[in-house]
Each structure stands twice: as C-alpha cells, then as structure tokens.
Design a protein around this nucleic acid. Structure first.
Length: 803
DNA sequence: AGCACGCCGACT
DNA sequence: GTCGGCGTGCTC
C-alpha cells in the first residue's frame, strides 16, 4: 500500500476529514490502521491516526509520513470503527472520538523550539541570541522573552534561525529519585569532620547515611529529616552523595492484600437470573439484559460468576461502575475473586497509573477491567461479557464532547463481539425499564434480598410539622431520638445531605443581596478553607467579604446547609457522637475517601455524614439507621427527571441500612411528604413508581416516549445569542418532520457562563429520518458566524441533565 | 487550531 | 518605502 489516510490532531470543522500521506519505503508494511504517526501539516508537525491504507489518492501533492509515533496500532479495527460511529452519532470530531478512547496520558504535546539553521553562521547571530543558546541548547518558543521575539522573527526570515516542531507524548514515565552515598562509611565519618560547623543539615544527612548506608528514596529521606533536599543537593555537588532516577511501575494496589474468595452458592432466584445469561454465553450471542434487583439481592455475585465463566473460556470482561461507587469495597470484591487479572480504571488514579492499567489491558496481562465510564473503551480483542452496574447513574453520560453514553457504547461493542450486556440496577432508568417491557431488553428480576433479610422500615417525617412544633433544627425529633438510640446500642448511622441545589451561597441579611460570579450567572459558593468564595462553573474565586458590597452591612453570612454546618449542629446536639464527614472538601486529597470509609468500617465513628457519595455501594454490618436530612432538595430542580432522581437516591441510600444481621431503619425528612417519588421510595415500590412516572412522561412528551436533543447557543452578546437560537428553532421547524416538537428558545438554566450568554432550544422527536443530516447542515449553516463572531453551538443528543 | 499570505495604516 | 496590525483561507 502506498498511501495512508490520516485523521490529524486538530479538533476543528475544517480538519475533520481524512488527509492522505505517502508511506515512505522504510515504513512499507510497517504502517497499519490504528497507529499514530507524525505527519507534516502545513508548516507544523502533528500526530494523526492512520485509519486506512490505499494504493490510490486523488491528491496531487501528497507529503510523506514523517515518522511513527507508536510502534504498534493503539486502536484495533473495532475501536477505529467505534470511533467513526461515535463521531457520527454524537456529532463530534473524529479526532475527539479517537482521543476519548485512549488514556489522557497518551495525548500529545507539541513543542516549538528555536534553533540555528544548518546554514547559519553562529557569528552572524545577534549577541543576545547567541548567549541564550550558549546557556542551554535550543530555546523554547513559549518562554522566549518578549524582548527577543522581534529579533528572532527577523533572523528566521534571514534564514539564520529555524523553528523546530517536536511532538511528545504527555505521559511522563514515573521516575523516583534515589539517593545514596558515594563513599564508604569510614570516609563519610571523615567527611563529617570537614564540613563547615554551621552545616547542620548536611551533617545530619551524612549521619543518616552512616547509620543506613543503603540507597533511599529522596522523599523518604526528607520525611525523616525535614528540609533535607537542599542539603542533599549540596552534598551531591561535593561528590559525597549521588542521586539516581529510577523508573518504577505504577500499581495503585501493589501493597494491598486481597484474600481469595470462592463463588458463593446462589439462591434459586439468582440461579433463575443466571440461566439466560449463561445460555447466551454458551451460544456466543448478543443480548441486552436488564437485571432489576432490589438492593442487597446479590447482583454482584451474579456478575462475578458470569465473568468467571467468560474468563475460563479465555475471553475478556468489562465491568462499569459509577465513579462514586468505585469504592475500595467494590474493587476488593473483584480483586479478591480474580486477583491480578483485574485492571482498575477510575478518576482517583493519576494519569500515569491509568496509562499503566491501560497498557496491562493492551498487553493482555489483564483480562477483566473494572472502571468508570471511559473503561468501556478498554482495548480488548475478544470480549465475552459487558456489565454496567447501577445502570441508572448519570455519570455514564459524558457531558463534554464526545457526549456519549457508556450504555450505548456497551451495546455497540456487545453486538460486535456477539456477547451479552448486563445492565444492573435496583432503580433502572425509565428508558431501560420501558425497553425491557417492550422486549428490546430481557428483564431479569431479583425481588428478594440474599438470606431474606427484610428491606428496612422507612419513616417519612414532615418537616413542616416539626417547624410548627417549634423545632427549627435540621434534625426532626424522630431522627434525633433514633440517632441517640443507636449511639446507646453501639450501632452506626449514616446521614445523607443532599447537597445539590443547596450549596452554601452568601447572602446579606440586611438587603438580601446574594454574591454572584461576575462571569457566570450563578451564586458563588462559600468554602471555609481559606475563607473563599468560588464559582462552580469557571475558576473564579474571591475572598469572603466582611461587608456587603451593596449596602455595606456587616450582616453578611453564608446560607444553605453544607455538611460542615450539619456537623457543627450534630456536635452541639450530641457531643458524645463521633462523626466522620465526607464531602468534596474532606475527600479531595488522594486516598482520603478510602481512609475515611475504613475508619468508619473499623467503628472509629458512630455517624457517617456525607453527600451523594455515601449513597452508593457502602456495606457496613453495623449500620442500622439511615437518615436523609432533606429529601426534596433535588425534587424541585427544573429537570423532568427530578422525580426519578429523587426516587433513585432515596432507594439507594435506604439500601445502606440493615444489610446484615441487624435490621435497618430509614428516616426521610421532607417538606413534601405527599410526593409520589418519596412515598413510593419509602414503600420500596419501583414498579408503581415506574407506572406513575411513565404517565407523566407520556403527557409531557418526555423520554422514553420521545427522544430529546438540546441545542445550546452561546455568545458574548446576549441579543446575538438569542437571535441565533431563534433562527435555529425556525430552521429546525422547516427541516424536521411535523412530528418533531421544537421548544424554545429559552435562556439556559445557567444564563451566563464564562462571560458568554447562553440560550437553548430543545427538540422532542420520535423518529426523524434525516436527523443527523439536518443537524450537520445546521452546523455548516452557522459556520461563518462561529468563526467570525465567536458564536458557539453545542448539540447534545439524549442529554442527561438539561441543567 | 495555527500558520502563511495579503492587504491597509503608521512610522523611520 | 518598511513594519506590523489582523482578516482569510488552507492544511494531504
């Protein structure tokens, strides 16, 4: 093959196509589809993905491929096709789709350097440039002092300097510094005498090496001797110590022990659910199963046994778990059963760790991947089963381009590999449950908890009533009594604060002014750490003012109910209770999540207080009480799924109580106790909830009866944004069928973000033959506007949050 | 995206 | 007459 078609690394409209390059003789037979190559592109060098090889090209001025970037293809045939499909169905650039399938560490970095051209006489160069070169090799364009820019440009024109474009992989090999003495102990003792009297630190370091003459990690050394790194540097200079960079293999779980577990005996119900899966596995056929099983019904054991069968046949398995429930407990269950065959991918890993886990999969050292959304792109060749646990979780939908849903990708891959896909949940999405009702998916039902433990008893507390009775605290009397009761019995409680829509904004109690972000139309959130106000949408942050910027009053304070405030109130009401608080603030540091959960598991605390992150997957035997402090905070969000989300959250969190010997109880505090989402969650009645919610969806033409598309238009000028949105609405009315409903334009729920005004319109449709074509045409129609006037168009097919 | 090319005003 | 501002259009 003489030519290669390449998708170049420029995410833009004009470059979202294939560019043909000649394959130089030296690469003949080496270059294959799925490989990344470095190609000349205009005056630069870029990486690109080879997508096909061919013997003909229509282009008359083909350039040759410069070099290989990977020794082997990084995307196999299936993933190349999947990328093309993703870019079509989510309307993203091909390069964006390809990049989404690789770990971030494999993204490329472009370096622009200035160096003397081969023909240049160094003496001809101006003094200031020559000295810069003498100091240290080529100059990077980025940190060229602005005073030199003009001179450099002139010399480039004169042909004395040239720009060198280099391509590098962002991934850094993990290097650690080891320090060791260059001299034997005897000589070290001698050196100790020769050091200046005031070099205390250096003496301390040498003494350390006299006691322990072996190489030591620099970080470990600085742990035992504070500020040792400066002394070490000095000692290296003196030739007493030496340092060594060693590349280490990153294994986030290397120090963990995972006792092996054996398959548990299945209940009759589990066996019945297992059968159709095994049948499909044996026949090597594709099928989507919706496994609807109440919390604690043993879904995971079914996953484990199905996976075991797949692995025994020499095939691979993918298990997706929502990010927040990718807890150590969950990972442990898989590692314990399958040991080193498991690769784990989640956001808690560093990009290098993710890269190494990815390579384990690529090199077939791992046969099973357990991971968050993007793990669906694991580079396996022979997948035997794909499992999506907690199928209803919104984190499976990516909110940036490519706006894909992991479930759709899973089904695509399941078809390709002719293998079953299992969607598991105690509270399936209405979309999936409706498909199961229609027979598109096969429904598997688990109604009983393993060992027949009853579901916990749920009490709904009307907080309006509490207020009328003079209780103004965040804790109802019922909840308070039950909390103190658990404390007496030595049992544990979990308290959930549903923080969404409740963030702690800052308001002036005198004039009612709320401090907002100057760039985005939302209120700033108070962070106690450093007394700061931060914007959730842009990076803006500012100090907490002591006076109201509007009226100058000192009565300005943060409102809303953060976990911190609850913790304070808890400490006041029940001072003897030991509380662990889990929220973004306390878990942002790496490993804290695990640490806090372990502490709770070891009963170092009586109450676990947290946000959504504690709702899922936790399994502690002594938790007998779950309290939901305010069930309706998300019920009133302007989102048609708010009822569904409330039902899901309440059901999930209730499932945390009484999972073992001790029976559990749940207290739900709410201001709208009559709402069906809350009522039915308290009765653990998903099926009635499903029917009720489906009626609502039908009458308002929402999914699953209709599909949605959200088009968001943003522009620095509000009028322009509104105008364009209006025109888009008209355009769509003209080009889509009469069956489609076009709503809007309306101001986006976040009307202004990063100094851009946002308007949106929504399309509801059932079937549209020319949908993708029309949307693509829409993009082209506004192309000039987009480049000329800084207009941005965002199209989200099947949006998950319309917020 | 980034870069070259090209056309206009400001200045040595 | 040259330098440098940014609008325009292309990149195999």
């Amino acid at each position: 093959m003489r030519y290669a078609s390449v998708v170049v690394d420029v995410p833009a409209k004009g470059t979202d196509k294939l560019f043909d390059y000649e394959i130089p003789n030296k690469f003949a037979g080496v270059i294959q589809p799925g490989m990344r190559v470095i190609v000349p592109f205009g005056s630069r060098k870029l990486t690109g993905f080879v997508v096909q090889l061919k013997n003909e090209t229509d282009i008359d001025s083909v350039k040759p491929i410069h070099s290989l970037f990977d020794p082997e293809p990084v995307l196999n045939h299936e993933l190349l096709e999947l990328g093309a499909w993703l870019s079509e169905t989510t309307l993203c650039y091909k390069i964006t789709a390809f990049q989404a399938m690789l770990p971030a560490a494999m993204k490329t970095r472009y370096i622009k350097e200035i160096k003397p051209s081969s023909s240049a006489q160094l003496e001809d160069l101006p003094e200031e440039i020559r000295t810069a070169f003498e100091k240290g090799g080529p100059l990077s364009w980025e940190d060229l002092p602005s005073s030199l820019v003009a001179v450099v440009q002139k010399e480039i024109r004169n042909g004395n300097l040239q720009i060198d474009y280099r391509v590098e992989q962002k991934q850094k090999k993990r290097l650690v510094k080891y320090v060791k003495p260059l001299l034997p102990v005897r000589e070290l003792e001698e050196q100790l005498q020769h050091l200046p009297a005031r070099a205390h630190k250096q003496k301390e370091v040498i003494q350390f090496f006299i006691d322990h003459p072996n190489p030591i990690l620099l970080t470990e050394l600085t742990n035992s001797i504070q500020g040792a790194s400066i002394a070490v540097k000095a000692l290296i200079k003196k030739g007493i110590l030496t340092e060594e960079q060693v590349e280490i293999y990153r294994d986030p779980y290397e120090h963990k022990q995972f006792p092996r577990t054996k398959p548990l005996p299945l209940t009759d119900e589990q066996k019945r659910a297992m059968e159709p899966i095994l049948d499909k596995l044996n026949r090597h056929e594709h099928e989507v199963f919706l496994m609807y099983g109440v919390t604690g019904s043993g879904k995971t054991e079914i996953y484990l046994q199905a996976i075991e069968k797949v692995l025994n046949e020499g095939k691979e398995a993918i298990v997706l778990v929502p990010e927040i429930s990718l807890t150590p407990q969950m990972v442990q269950r898989f590692k314990s059963r399958f040991g080193s065959q498991v690769a784990v991918l989640h956001s808690g890993l560093s990009s290098g760790e993710k890269f190494d886990e990815w390579r384990k999969i690529y090199r077939k050292e791992a046969k099973l991947v357990v991971g968050a959304r993007s793990a669906i792109f694991a580079p396996f060749q022979n997948i035997g089963i794909i499992i999506i646990d907690e199928e209803h979780e919104t984190s499976y939908k990516q909110e940036e381009s490519p706006r894909y849903h992991a479930r759709d990708v899973a089904i695509y891959r399941g078809k390709y590999h002719q293998c079953p896909v299992i969607l598991g949940s105690a509270t399936p999405t209405l979309e999936s449950f409706a498909r199961a009702q229609k027979g598109v998916y096969t429904l598997l039902t688990l109604k009983e908890r393993v060992n027949r433990r009853p579901l916990p008893e749920v009490h709904i507390v009307d907080m309006r009533e509490e207020l009328r009775n003079g209780n103004r605290s965040m804790f109802s009397r019922t909840l308070f009594e039950k909390l103190t009761d658990r404390l007496k019995k030595g049992e544990q409680s979990v308290l959930l604060l549903n923080k969404r829509g409740y963030s702690s904004f800052v308001m002036c109690r005198n004039c009612g002014h709320v401090i907002g972000c100057p760039h985005c139309d939302i209120s700033l959130t108070y962070h106690r750490h450093g007394e700061k106000l931060k914007c959730h949408y842009c990076q803006f942050e500012t100090a907490m003012p002591s006076r109201c910027p509007e009226c100058g009053s000192e009565h300005i304070r943060f409102f809303g109910t953060g976990t911190q405030r609850i913790e304070e109130e808890l400490n006041r009401l029940i001072p003897e209770a030991r509380v662990i608080r889990m929220d973004v603030d306390t878990t942002s540091r790496k490993g804290m999540h695990e640490k806090l959960l372990n502490a709770f598991g070891e009963k170092k605390a009586d109450i676990l207080l947290g946000t959504q992150m504690i709702a899922k997957g936790l399994d502690f035997p002594d938790v007998t009480l779950v309290g939901v402090l305010s069930a309706d905070t998300m019920l009133h969000l302007p989102d048609f799924r708010s009822g569904e989300k409330t039902f899901q959250l309440l059901t999930q969190v209730s499932g945390r109580a009484g999972r073992h010997e001790l029976p559990g109880e749940v207290v739900i505090q709410t201001y709208t106790p009559e709402h069906y989402s809350i009522q039915l969650a308290s009765l653990h009645d998903f099926e009635t909830f499903y029917r009720q919610e489906m009626k609502m969806r039908k009458s308002f033409a929402y999914p699953p009866y209709y599909f949605l598309i959200l088009i968001t238009v943003s522009h620095p000028n509000a009028i322009k944004a509104a105008e364009v949105t209006e025109k888009i609405g008209q355009y769509l009315k003209l080009h889509l069928s009469n069956e489609a409903q076009i709503l809007g334009p309306v101001s986006s729920p976040i009307p202004k973000m990063k100094d851009r005004y946002r308007f949106q319109c929504m399309i509801k449709y059932k079937r549209e033959k020319n949908l993708y074509k029309t949307l693509k045409l829409l993009f082209e129609h506004y192309e000039e506007d987009m480049s000329q006037t800084d207009l941005k168009l965002m199209i989200d097919l099947n949006p998950y949050t319309i917020l």
